[in-house]
Amino acid sequence: METSPTVHLVVALSCEARPLARLLRLKGDPAHRAFRLFVGDGADLVVTGVGKVAAAAGTAYMAAAIDARPDDVWINVGVGGHRSEALGSVWTAHTIRDAGSGRHWHPPRTATEGFAAAEVVTIEEVEREYPRECVYEMEAAGFWPTATRFTAAELCQVVKVVSDGPGSSVDEVVAERVEGLITAALPTLSDLLDSLRDLASAAPPAPPALASELLERWHFSLTQRRQLERLQQRFWALTSSSEGGEEAGRQGVVDVLLGPPGPDAELRSATEVLDYFAQRVDEVALEREPRTPRRGS
């Protein structure tokens, strides 16, 4: 991908949204009515309302509304109760358990290993007894299976700030308190964002899309398009134009097939283009020496 991935934040309440919007300089987008969306440079946020169904719907709405990319980062931020951990402590989910269905998931910890981790249990009614050592909340089990349809699980995380417990009733969790807790958690959340953005940079780069010049010049069937895409990917990988990004890769192919002194005048059909291009790609491959990559892996 040529530009950095976007961070998508999913929260239940406006009081959770406000500190995050301030941190990331997000502004409300009045174009959206089904859910409140905040947008900014490299990040956006949706306020879904309370509960796992709302969280799932808001996450899906956001993905469709902003045309999410497969290397984007998704984070559900919220508050929850815990029987023993301190108010204001911040937890990434190592396990998400849906108390209603019994389903559970383990968000990969690739980007969160330096952060405190806990089991997060999604409940449908307020928990006042805190029977187990976990964070009780109401959205994660709706967010997780939805968000992981749009991005790699490693780039998808759930973060909860402890807002209540046996010594601090859930009835005291009012908007001002939630906003204060999220504000206090911003340094940790900011570190987590950095870690996830770093990880996203290791995602596979997107090979160049097929150049429109080629598609206009010759008619390719669907199968031939796939063959052309694979040849173009090979050419891009072999010529190191992958280091120059998608546009450079696309231009490289156009230069081979159309550029002066391109053979396009002699290539009369898509089949001839594919044969010629395959031959050129093989020639490039056979001339290439192995190179030590710039990145470690």
Binding site: T148, A153, L155
Partner: peptide
Amino acid sequence: VRSQSFRLQKVSPS
């Protein structure tokens, strides 16, 4: 799990 990325996980496997 289906939505995992081998490439991303390889950065720091568990």
